[in-house]
Design a protein around this nucleic acid. Structure first.
Length: 726
DNA sequence: GTCGATACAT
């Protein structure tokens, strides 16, 4: 039915007018589409009511609140008005400022000034709100100037709006100046200022402000505590968060559901899981957001089983909580569980996003299993993630950590729009494979393509140099980092330099780096010097470094063992006894060696002297055979690698039962002809195993790839890719 | 007739 045809001709009578007017208002409120509004607009004109500004404003506001709003229609209706009263214009400004296009409010304002529409002090709050939401500093400042000129600036609502605007534009000091000038500050003004500090990361300014608020007559409400507590959580500021919790309790602020949620999320975000759990267990109902925060918190705190418990108790699961649980496993050294969970998620029909993929790829990287890596890449390619740069960057890293340098290179090549992470990942890939030449070449190519290197790029480059013994090149790279790229070296970079000099037997230079670095050396750096001293039998400096390690990490197994060996070599038996006793008292145990080998997509793990494998007899039999065959080729067990005090026979066994030798023998039993044997080890490869692998590669004509704690060794025809420099 | 409107997780 056509609305227009049913309308009688307007009869000029005030009663009829009022009737039409009210009817039109109701129709405007109910309008659900632009075409509907246009029909009503036509009726307004036909009825001769188009001089009614209040009707036209209602029309304009209705155009803004449609499910698919038309701001341009609203504005054109507005511009047709004749000097609308400011309280009507302000209605529209308010609507526009809250809409998805707050900039339309500023546009309307510009036109109002142009057309000479009257603006009053009530126009400013919505305009400032628009400037806050965009955020638009220069427009906001202009409004400030305008308000000052017309003396609207003494209005507390305008003042609060200015505080919000300056905070949102990052001008927190101006916000504070405005705030300080306010003669009367209500709870909203205080909240805006506090919120502003939180939004600008100025958490340390919040507490003093709350104290000041307490001293004034304004009582803080539970809403602002929710905001502040969650801000503490985001900043990981536990001390501050706790102080707030105490403040809340002491001041008997009502802890409502939302504040409870904020507290749980804050404690979980700060890894203070006992506190989080205390509140969480009382929380009812337990929503998905808080549960996810608990999962992440437990994961970060290393309590992955507790995280899983929460996960399993969730009645409703979304992509985010799946991703949180998966990345928890990936980051807490349980990559297999991460991958299992990913499979389960796919089975249940939950579609991963980029974030999930990055966790899963990093799980594959730490697992180091080629089979899984290939599976994940096909998933990436089949599900349109192959064009996503961060995913490709992660794939490069994954293949590098799986020992698949060529596949890493393939991914690198297919990425055309490379960013600094792409380049750094590939440089890092060459570095862990001991290929310093290609790492440096790639760096030059990167420079030619005008991609600026960052700190991570230089870690890769320095790492490559130190693992290849390129002392001079490393020195130059370090200097270039500072001089050409204006980057400030971090601990990692100094660590690489210590490593570079240490591995090259330039122990004096290594010590000088430590002495001259601007920050305190950490356990890794002293550990690196200690390791160098161990290689070059430098007992005096070694003892010194080991002691520094123990100061920083009293439970460091390697430093205890190293010291004990130094003393044993020097026949200082009393000191040896002391160290042993110390280890016993402190409960320091040597980290047990563990090696994984992947065969037919299955992963087998061996610990040192492992007797748990199903085919244990066969494996040890094979080990005896291999040892005999290698002895013919010149192998003699290198007893200096045994760090415990045992008799000769036991020492030999301890050496031969290193986990990577067991894994190798299992690989030799099960491998397919022509395939390469890949072993992933948790510790550094010892000299004896290194020699063992080299000889095995020659005697059996196979390629063996071993990933140890820090790098790859590729053994072929009796030679290792690390050139015995590791 | 005006300002904020709580938590929000990978």
């Amino acid at each position: 039915m056509n609305v227009m045809t049913t309308i009688p001709q307007p009869i000029i009578s005030s009663t009829v007018h009022v009737n039409h007017y009210n009817q039109l208002l109701t129709t405007l409120s109910a309008a659900s589409s632009l075409s509907h509004l246009k029909q009503v607009h036509a009726r307004i004109i036909r009825l001769g009511l188009d001089r009614s500004n209040s009707l036209l404003i209602k029309l304009a506001v209705s155009a803004c609140t449609l499910s698919s709003p038309s701001f341009d229609y609203a504005l054109s209706a507005f511009y047709q008005m004749h000097n609308p009263e400011p309280h009507l214009s302000n209605k529209l400004l308010r609507e526009l400022s809250r809409s998805i296009k707050p900039e339309k409010a500023l546009l309307a304002y510009a036109k109002m000034r142009e057309k000479g529409f009257v603006v009053d002090s009530f126009s400013l709050p919505p305009l400032l709100k628009a400037s806050t939401r965009i955020p638009a500093l220069s427009e906001g400042m202009e409004l400030h100037g305008f308000a000052t000129k017309l003396d609207f600036v003494s209005d507390p609502f305008v003042q609060t709006g200015l505080v919000a605007m300056y905070s949102a534009c990052g001008h927190i000091e101006d916000a504070r100046m405005m705030f300080d000038k306010m003669p009367e500050r209500d709870v909203v003004a205080w909240n805006m200022m506090i919120d502003g500090y939180c939004g600008n990361g100025r958490y340390n300014d919040v507490l003093p402000l709350i104290e000041e608020m307490k001293r004034s007559d304004v009582k803080p409400d539970e809403k602002i505590f929710s905001t502040v507590v969650s801000a503490c959580g985001r900043a990981g500021n536990l001390e501050f968060g706790k102080a707030f919790h105490e403040f809340i309790t002491e001041n008997k602020v009502v802890i409502d559901y939302n504040l409870q949620c904020s507290l749980v999320i804050m404690y979980a975000g700060c890894c203070s899981m006992d506190m989080a759990a205390n509140i969480f267990k009382k929380l009812s109902p337990k929503n998905i957001v808080v549960s996810t925060a608990m999962i992440t918190g437990y994961s970060k705190a290393g309590r992955i089983d507790d995280a899983r418990l929460i996960f399993d108790q969730m009645t409703e699961k979304d992509l985010i909580c799946w991703s949180a649980m998966i990345s928890g496993y990936a980051e807490r050294g349980q990559p297999q569980k991460a991958l299992q969970l990913f499979d389960k998620m796919l089975t249940l029909g939950v579609k991963p996003d980029q974030v999930t993929m990055l966790s899963v790829i990093s799980a594959c990287a730490s697992l180091g299993a080629v089979h899984n890596a290939l599976k994940i890449q096909s998933y990436v390619d089949e599900n349109r993630f192959s064009g996503v740069l961060p995913v490709n960057n992660a794939l490069i890293d994954m293949y590098a950590k799986c020992g698949e340098l060529d596949r890493a290179k393939q991914v690198f090549t297919r990425v055309h729009r490379r960013n600094v992470i792409t380049w750094s990942s590939m440089i890092g890939a060459y570095a862990v494979h001991g290929d310093a030449i290609n790492a440096l070449d790639l760096f030059h190519e990167m420079k030619n393509q005008k991609t600026a290197p960052n700190e991570v790029t230089f870690v890769g480059l320095l790492y490559a140099c130190s693992h290849a013994g390129l002392v001079e090149e490393g020195r130059k790279i370090f200097a270039s980092m500072v001089n050409d790229y204006n980057l400030t070296p971090k601990r990692e970079h100094y660590g690489c330099m210590v490593d570079l000099y240490g591995r090259a037997n330039l122990l004096k230079e290594a010590l000088e780096v430590i002495e001259q670095m601007p920050m305190a050396p950490n356990v890794v750096i002293w550990g690196s010097l200690m390791a160098a001293c161990r290689i070059y039998n430098e007992t005096e400096l070694g003892e010194f470094a080991a002691k520094r390690v123990l100061e920083l990490d009293p439970y460091h197994d390697g430093a205890h063992i190293f010291l004990s060996n130094i003393y044993a070599k020097g026949k200082k038996w009393e000191n040896v006894g002391e160290i042993r006793k110390l280890m016993q008292n402190k409960g320091v145990v040597k980290q047990r060696g563990s090696s994984r080998i992947e065969l037919d997509g299955e992963i087998h793990e061996f610990l040192t002297a492992d007797k748990n494998h199903a085919r244990v007899d066969e494996i040890y039999e094979k080990l005896d055979a291999v040892v005999s065959e290698l002895e013919v080729a010149g192998y003699t067990p290198n007893m200096s690698c045994v760090l415990v005090d045992l008799d000769e026979d036991e020492k030999t066994k301890a050496l031969l039962w290193h986990s990577e030798k067991l894994a190798l023998c299992f690989g030799l039993l099960r491998r397919k002809r022509g395939s390469c044997i890949r072993i992933i080890k948790n510790l550094r490869v010892c000299e004896d195993c290194h020699n063992f692998m080299k000889l095995a590669s020659k005697v059996y004509g196979i390629q063996i790839v071993v990933r140890d704690r820090t790098r790859f060794h590729r053994y072929e025809d009796g030679v290792c890719s690390c050139k015995d420099y590791w």
